[in-house]
Design a protein around this nucleic acid. Structure first.
Length: 228
DNA sequence: AGAGTCAAATGGTTGG
DNA sequence: CCAACCATTTGACTCT
């Protein structure tokens, strides 16, 4: 019949023919290479999606388990959408109990070792891979949250620096008007700060790090210029 | 309907 | 080289 069905059949036969599971990545990669070799035009993503439902990551027990969780929540919520390869990807919703236990163990250590994952998986009636994925996603969420917080802090910091900048500019204006004995509204634009900080006679560069220093410097310059 | 959430998939990087 | 991790993407599901 249709091309889609043919692809599905091919997928099934390959899936059943997978060898002994050694490691997630190496096995996946071996299959990917094999599939890419056999079907160079086959969409990569969907081949892998299809394969993933096979190995130890989704034993028949766990598929039933996932369905059970979904059914518990809502009988109609089990998604039976069938993709073009005849496979389904059901959305697992962790129960409150599962989430709570995962959360509490995350607080203890956010990167559990293999034995800890295994133990958690047994306690939660999940696969170790699911526990691993949950911790990965959880770390990502923590990091995202931290980034958001950091961003807020930086925004506030930026705002206060802007405010400080405005304040210093205003202060500088006032100091310049003091120098020329003009009231603030009659402020006259002077050369840039650098010119102000250098004494015209001795060419001494003044220190301008504090308000007092600036005041002293201005008074110093004024004192010298009075002698002219 | 579409935006948001989150488990899962995928590919890249890295330390041992 | 490989296991473990991370960043990003996908897709199922929920909420408004």
């Amino acid at each position: 019949m249709g091309e889609e069905e043919e692809e599905c059949d091919i997928g099934l036969s390959l899936r059943l023919g997978s060898g002994e599971y050694t490691s997630r990545r190496t096995d996946e990669r071996k299959r990917q290479v094999q599939l890419n070799f056999l079907f160079p035009s086959h969409p990569k993503k969907e081949i892998v999606d299809y394969e993933v439902h096979d190995d130890d990551r989704s034993s028949s027990k766990t598929v039933n388990q996932n369905e059970e969780h979904a059914i518990k929540k809502d009988n109609t919520s089990v998604n039976s959408h069938i993709n073009k390869y005849g496979t389904t990807r059901k959305k697992l919703r962790l129960t409150k109990e599962q989430s709570a236990l995962l959360e509490s163990s995350f607080k203890e250590h956010n990167t559990p070792n293999m034995a800890q994952k295994q133990e958690l998986a047994e306690r939660l009636d999940l696969r170790p891979r699911q526990v691993e994925v949950w911790f990965q996603n959880r770390r990502a969420r923590t990091k995202l949250k931290k980034t958001e917080v950091d961003c807020e802090v930086l925004k506030k910091c930026c705002e206060s620096l802007k405010e400080e900048n405005r304040r210093l500019k205003k202060e500088l204006q006032e100091l310049r008007s003091i120098k020329f004995g003009l009231p603030s509204p009659f402020y006259v634009q002077l050369p840039k700060t650098a010119a102000l900080t250098v004494c015209p006679t001795c060419e001494r560069i003044a220190k301008t790090s504090t308000t007092d220093d600036k005041n002293n410097m201005v008074l110093d310059v004024m004192g010298k210029s009075n002698k002219f």
